[in-house]
Simulated assay, not measured.
Amino acid sequence: MKILILGGTILVGRHIAEAALDAGHNITLFNRGQTNTHLFPNVEKLRGDRDGGLAALRDRSWDVVVDVNGYVPRHVYDSASLLKDRVGQYIYVSTGAVYQTPFPINGDESHAVRRIEDETNEDTNTYYGELKYLCERRAEEAMPGRTLVCRLGLVAGRYDDSDRATYWVVRASQGGTMVVPGKPDDAFQVIHGRDFGNFIVRAAEQNLTGVYNTTGEVITWGQWVETAKAVGEADTTFVWIDDREFLERHVGAGWRHFPLYLPPDWGAWWTNNSDKAQALGLTYRPTEDIVRDILDWYATLPDDYMMRVGLSLEQEQTLLTHWQA
């Protein structure tokens, strides 16, 4: 198959590109050429911009397009409209953030979505979920009956430089006394980027359409950090602090210090149901393998690499001192 990937050089798109190549498909990457330009030296790369710079896509045809970096509905509609007569299928990578909160336990694709009153608003920081849902709609409007929407949750594994999942794995593998927010039996959910990439390739091969949750297997926070401890062969002791007000008072309880620690009004977001996608080929590797891949990749980073999120050791010690006082 000939597959056009809009994006393709960061985390999710990179895993999709690798999966497609390993499956023997021919891929073309379309992006601005500003990130990881050294990747895929033998792959065709077209340069342009989602905002009015689509000229490189004209007069070309592919079997399927995978839209990884569409955040603005206008951009998605422009791309899909331009390609509608020259591609068979449009795969749009969306997010579970389209759903309204609180999210129900084991909620599926039928759960209510977020909507924005002014559909011309393009503030992706404030209306991320709302605009991603509009992107889904715009893709389907441009290519009715030929669109596949995959709603992702947390993606982890190598190439994840957001450090959201990586921080917990690395810290738990380092030993000592570690602060973890919440309770060990709180739900947690993660998918390895390559498992998602493999599903996208299968979906392209099978010409799947419709809307699918493509989140990970539901485990617990305790399983997540205990697995990292075991894989890292560490002597880590976990101190669970289920007191958001305490954390906020001493260091702040937001994602900067505690990535993935969701506020209560999100409900059971870490229990997103992906049975529909699993029935059509979505599979998961064991948690241990995800953790090991993260640690193996992290070991290749420069010694002076600084995590974008998470507690410093000094902040962690401050919390422990106050908590145990």
Rank of each mutant, 00 (worst) to 15 (best):
D49P: 05
T37C: 13
V180Y: 10
W269C: 04
Q89I: 00
Y99C: 01
P181Y: 06
L82P: 11
F199P: 05
Y261A: 00
M1S: 13
R138S: 10
R32Y: 08
Y99M: 02
V170L: 13
D63K: 04
Y99F: 10
L83D: 10
A268G: 06
S81V: 02
F258N: 01
S312T: 15
W221Y: 14
W323R: 04
D108G: 02
Q34A: 13
L319W: 07
G252C: 00
L83Q: 09
R115F: 00
G267F: 05
E130Y: 00
Q206W: 01
P144D: 03
E248I: 00
V149E: 00
E245M: 00
L301H: 13
N69K: 08
Q278N: 04
W255Q: 07
G176L: 05
A17D: 10
R285E: 06
G88E: 14
H25G: 09
T300N: 10
V72M: 07
R114A: 00
L319N: 08
D85Q: 13
R202L: 14
L262Y: 14
C135Y: 05
G153F: 10
T283P: 04
D108L: 01
T177D: 09
L29Y: 13
V43E: 10
N213K: 06
R194Q: 12
S173C: 06
A97I: 02
V218L: 08
L282M: 08
R194M: 15
L208G: 06
G24K: 13
C150T: 15
N213A: 02
S312E: 05
D163K: 09
W255N: 05
R171Y: 03
G7V: 04
E245V: 01
L6S: 12
H250I: 02
K229I: 00
E233K: 15
G193S: 07
A234T: 03
E117W: 00
D242S: 05
L295A: 11
C150G: 07
L134F: 03
M178V: 15
